[in-house]
Lab assay of single mutants.
Amino acid sequence: GSMEQGFLPKGWEVRHAPNGRPFFIDHNTKTTTWEDPRLKIPA
């Protein structure tokens, strides 16, 4: 929902695949990933 959306880094969006699995869109680089960007520790 909109709650989890608010925690994503700037430029990211979460969508759900037809099977219900969430995936993440990085509008900054125009890419998608199954990995939650929030789980990655910034270098």
Rank of each mutant, 00 (worst) to 15 (best):
D26Q: 00
F24H: 00
G6K: 10
R15I: 07
S2V: 12
M3K: 14
R21D: 07
I41Q: 13
P42N: 12
I25E: 02
K30V: 04
E4H: 14
L8F: 06
W12Y: 03
P22H: 15
F24L: 00
E4G: 13
P37S: 01
T31H: 07
L39H: 10
K40G: 11
P9Y: 05
A43S: 12
N28R: 05
W34R: 02
R38Q: 02
T32R: 11
R38D: 03
W34E: 03
R38P: 01
T33A: 03
N19S: 10
W34N: 03
F24A: 02
L8C: 09
P42E: 11
P9A: 05
T33K: 00
P37Q: 02
N19V: 01
G20M: 03
L39D: 09
D26R: 00
P18Q: 09
T32G: 06
P9C: 08
S2G: 14
F23W: 06
D36W: 04
V14K: 07
E4C: 15
G6P: 09
K10E: 11
K40M: 14
M3C: 14
G20H: 05
K10H: 10
V14C: 15
G6I: 09
P42L: 10
P42D: 10
L39F: 09
R21S: 06
N19C: 14
F7I: 14
F7P: 15
R38V: 03
D26K: 00
P9M: 06
T32M: 15
T31I: 08
H27T: 08
G20D: 04
G1V: 12
P37V: 03
G1I: 12
H27L: 08
R38M: 05
I41K: 10
E35F: 15
F23V: 07
R21Y: 06
N28V: 08
P42Q: 12
Q5F: 14
K30G: 15
H27K: 06
T33G: 01
I25R: 00
D26E: 02
T31K: 08
H27M: 08
R38N: 04
T29F: 04
W12N: 02
R21V: 09
R15G: 07
P18M: 09
F7L: 14
R15N: 04
F7N: 14
P9T: 04
G6A: 10
R38H: 02
T29W: 03
E35N: 10
E4V: 14
P42H: 10
A43E: 11
V14W: 03
F23M: 07
N19Y: 04
S2I: 12
Q5H: 13
V14A: 06
M3Q: 11
R15M: 07
K10C: 15
I25Q: 03
I25H: 05
R15Q: 07
A17S: 09
G11C: 07
P9K: 05
G6N: 10
G6V: 11
M3W: 11
P42Y: 11
R15W: 06
T33P: 00
L8G: 03
W34Q: 03
P37Y: 03
P37K: 01
G11A: 00
W34K: 01
P37T: 00
G1P: 12
E4M: 14
G11K: 02
E35L: 15
K30Y: 07
P37D: 02
E13T: 05
V14N: 00
L39M: 12
A43F: 13
E13L: 03
A43H: 10
I41S: 13
K40F: 14
D36Y: 04
P42W: 09
F7M: 14
K10F: 12
V14I: 15
A17F: 06
E4I: 15
R21E: 08
D36G: 01
R38I: 00
